[in-house]
Design a protein around this nucleic acid. Structure first.
Lengths: 342, 342
DNA sequence: CCAATTATTCAAAGCGCTTTGGATAAATTA
DNA sequence: TAATTTATCCAAAGCGCTTTGAATAATTGG
């Protein structure tokens, strides 16, 4: 059923029906409710493409997902979009996902821009001086960066968690518990968030007069076997650490497995602090969480990102928006005072 | 830049340009290449909505994600869409995600149908006699079910992994290793796949003359703490099992943690077999995988689902398509012969 | 009661594309 | 060379909506 047919049923012009449904004031309340009820009854909804064509708005926001970046099409993403999607759907928007092969990322953005298939995009996993930002600015496409890129000359809108501060505080917590050998199992450090986390860790150590030892620092994709292998290796070298700072729950499970295998009790023998994105399928927040963590919900981040992007879209000439959230430091079962007798 | 402007540059009619770009035979090869090159040079791409409106195809396939189903917006999903997306983008399609609150699922499908915003949908996580199937049939929207629903009177297209067979074989493997007390940590059994897995497990036991004991069977959302808690509890009751059959890697990590905490070595003291969806961020397939598993890639499933749905879309009147994959049984480090002396 | 507002409704143009049915130019055939 | 076919290209209609500008009906004021 299209507008014309529907309006014939009502014996009204398409104009009036359209206005009634879109909440324009030029139509009387009486006919408006009549139209709305009839729409429900006859299950009429305006054709998406026609509406978009006429209004110039696609009512969609885009995500470009490069297949090679496992860091992105990964567990984080599913919770993130659960958040964005929730906010978007309340505003009548949906998400358009495009999966591209390694090269095609730039092309995908150009495509979206010239085809006008989305009204804005969210950029994931920014790196230093990320080329996508300049590209989207050039294309005049509204966008919001989840995270931050460094060394950008022009301003842009972003949402981020204070990763540096979070890891600084986590490190300070461990130091205050007496730990002086603290290992860092970081994510890939060409990712901006991981670089910041490392800086926070190093700052805390330096300020406490503890030297930085690359023998107990690692940087890899955040997977379970990574946590296991790194822990096994680090714990078996001379002068092993008494604590681990781990970038995500997933490798932390590996750390835990390694410790147990080595006959060491988490917390008692070796402390662990992790960053917890509060992934829905890896819940660690019981009354007393399994891990001590710096916590920040990735789903809430998704919600906020969506809201900020919508704001940009609805206010084209506006200022760039930025927002920085602090992670919460939550004490769980995986940390304890350092063992004096080692 | 729109078609009219672009065609004026070329001093050709919109008709010819459109035909040149869409590969119609009525245009000479010479002008075709000229048009194509110019399109590249001037960065011209047809407006998506206009094209869709004219052709009646949205070039998008939809996923409806109910927020309350953690089982769906979860780790599985990100790998699944990585697969679907890859296939779709090769055919010029993209994915439209709609996140809905608990109630709104049916409305979301009706919406897609009457707005013509997608050309087809993929249904996730079917249950017994799933109402979505009848709904989409009524709406005349092409769809493909990832999994199967039971007790449906009308045929429909689906793709599934033989979950029953997989778990039957896994159970038989354990039996052949001498295990006779085998615990089952299943997913939620109102999900079709979990129900089938249970049936496979029970079949194998029954055929081996082993009685089914609900004391060592659990059915919950597949999370790490579930695996941990269930294992702790099951192992501490009288007559504990010598093996665990676990529905996913995630709870299996919890099982492992519990065993280690109880001072039991996986494989040596207690065997574990899991189902492995080969999630990209939880890789367990080293040379010799961490877990013995029934293995079937969820990403490949995503690819196949996309291909099958496209086939449906391109062949409207056609037969319903069905495909059943067998999972691979892969021996890893988590299984061993049962201990004779207990 | 008639003119001036104001509240409703509508006809028609336009969004940017595809596609039908011709028209024109070039090539072929008799 | 004229008639026919074939290869190119095009004008215009249509996809289903929004929106401008105008018309009509209802209301108000003097």
């Amino acid at each position: 059923m299209n507008l014309k047919q529907f309006s014939e049923i009502l014996k009204l012009s398409p104009t009036t029906v359209s206005r009634a449904l879109n909440g324009f004031p030029e139509v009387s309340e009486k006919t408006r409710t009549r139209v709305q009820n009839a729409a429900k009854e006859h299950n009429y909804r305006p054709n998406t493409q026609a509406k978009s064509l006429a209004t110039g708005r696609s009512m969609a926001i885009g995500h470009v997902l490069p297949t090679f970046k496992k860091e992105i099409i990964n567990p984080i993403f599913s919770d993130f979009i659960a958040g964005t999607g929730e906010v978007l759907s309340k505003s009548g928007y949906h998400m358009a996902l495009t999966v591209v092969e390694d090269q095609g990322e730039e092309a995908a953005y150009r495509d979206m821009a010239s085809k006008r298939s989305v009204d804005g995009v969210i950029i994931h996993g920014p790196r230093e001086n990320d080329s996508r930002i300049a590209l989207l600015q050039e294309l005049g496409m509204p966008f919001l960066v989840h995270g931050r890129a460094q060394q950008m000359e022009t301003p842009y809108s972003w949402f981020d968690v204070n990763n540096r501060r979070a890891f600084k505080r986590a490190t300070q917590l461990l130091i205050s518990l007496g730990h002086r050998r603290i290992a860092l199992l970081n994510g890939l450090e060409y990712m901006d968030f991981a670089a910041r986390r490392r800086r926070g860790y190093e700052q805390a150590l330096t300020e406490a007069g503890i030297s930085i030892d690359s023998n107990i620092m690692r940087s890899e994709e955040m997977m379970e076997p990574y946590g296991f292998a790194a822990t096994m290796q680090i714990m078996q070298q001379p002068n092993p650490p008494t604590a681990f700072l781990v970038s995500s729950v997933i490798p932390a499970l590996g750390v835990q497995r390694a410790l147990l295998k080595l006959g060491l009790q988490p917390a008692t023998d070796v402390s662990i602090v992790i960053h917890d994105d509060q992934l829905s399928f890896l819940p660690i927040d019981a009354d007393r969480p399994m891990f001590t963590s710096t916590r920040s919900s990735i789903k809430d981040a998704g919600k906020r990102c969506a809201a900020m992007l919508l704001e940009q879209i609805n206010n084209p000439g506006g200022e760039t928006l930025t927002e920085l959230w602090e992670a919460e430091l939550v004490i769980g079962e995986s940390t304890g005072v350092v063992k004096t007798s080692l």
